[in-house]
Design a protein around this nucleic acid. Structure first.
Lengths: 206, 206
DNA sequence: TGAATAACTAAAACGTGTTCTATATCTCGT
DNA sequence: ACGAGATATAGAACACGTTTTAGTTATTCA
């Protein structure tokens, strides 16, 4: 039977699989994700070619597909790993600002800056996320929920967000994604991104 | 020189090119868009294969590419044509409801129903729209602006929307797109779609 | 009208995501 | 330590978007 290397374990998000499979398998997976991020960062979505990823990660093409059943799964999983890092980092730091609105604007500005610093990577992840079909729903959902929770936690200053805050966080995630798509297609400049996000925060939180 | 059949005319959105090119060309273009919508409606994004579209439209593959430089351009243009129809139709009818919020909910519900009626078509257009890269920016922007204006007009009861309403319309467009993506990947059910939209309207308009 | 130019057609060819095949290597239970 | 089953490898093969080539049909305009 053709199973994945993590077969038999509960199907956790792939960047959490650090303790599943043999050491060699964990290393392979990390090499694959590293290669993916490297290529994406260098040349965007189109530069992440499955053959190239396999080469850089020093695995056979078939093995790559055993670990990640499609380019979309691969990129979205990589995105998940990045998001997870950003999320835990954010959890550890104290977000400046006295009101939910201020904190939100701070985090949004920071994230926007981060994305501008690596436009190719941003393009690759955004397009993968948006192009995903139902087979990658699990991976996409993981990232989506993580984003919602990050924004919600920002507003509540890392306490437990209430229902209202979660709803607002979801709307902000949506606007964020949409603006991201516009930015990737160059229909929106960096300041457009900031503008629209600030406007939305003001509509929702003031 | 390899020009497009509409070369020489100002670059209007393709569904507005009814008065450019020869009659034969106008008919070819319509046949192509019709074939696209037919295939999309039947089998979604994957069923819209360039060779198949060309066959159904009774043009050579090379001709198809002369009219639409990529699958994305093709699908987004088709989406534009549909949106344009819906928009003008909406403009002619009186939207029920006394408050912006009520009218908005009415239109959103109606649009949601329409999309559910043809899930394959929705999937095809959504994925094309979201996957578009910078080369299709014009087409995507046309659709995006049309969507914003439709929502804004809904709130203002077909009068001229003010700045505030346009900002709200944009947010709703963003949420709409995002929810659409979630629906396409089956991460959100039909009632999830309605729920999230209603919640957003309430956050923004009440 | 006739020659130049543009548009169209048919079909081959190319690039990249994905799948398949045959073989080799690893891992684990006995 | 051994044999069975799972994993990994190299590479061919396939599918579909896209480009290219060669030849045919329209269109234009002098």
């Amino acid at each position: 039977m053709a199973t994945s290397p993590s077969a038999g374990s509960p199907d956790l998000p792939a960047w959490q699989l650090g303790d599943h499979g043999s050491a060699a398998q964990r290393e392979r997976r990390q090499r694959i994700l590293d290669a993916t991020l490297g290529l994406a960062s260098k040349g965007g979505y189109d530069a992440v070619q499955m053959r190239t990823v396999a080469e850089h990660a020093d695995v056979a093409l078939g093995t790559l597909y055993r670990y990640f059943p499609s380019k979309t799964h691969l990129l979205v999983t990589a995105l998940g790993r990045e998001f997870h890092q950003a999320h835990t980092k954010l959890r550890r730091t104290k977000i400046p600002g006295n009101t939910p609105s201020q904190r939100m604007l701070h985090v949004l500005a920071k994230t926007t800056r981060r994305m501008q610093r690596d436009p190719h990577l941003t393009e690759a992840m955004t397009r993968a996320f948006m192009f995903a079909d139902a087979t990658a729903a699990t991976e996409v959902d993981t990232v989506s929920k993580l984003m919602d929770r990050t924004f919600a936690a920002t507003m509540s200053a890392n306490g437990e967000p209430d229902e209202q805050q979660l709803a607002i966080a979801r709307v902000l995630s949506d606007v964020w994604l949409s603006v991201l798509v516009a930015w990737v297609t160059r229909r929106a400049s960096a300041s457009d991104v900031t503008d629209r996000l600030e406007r939305t925060v003001r509509l929702l939180l003031d």
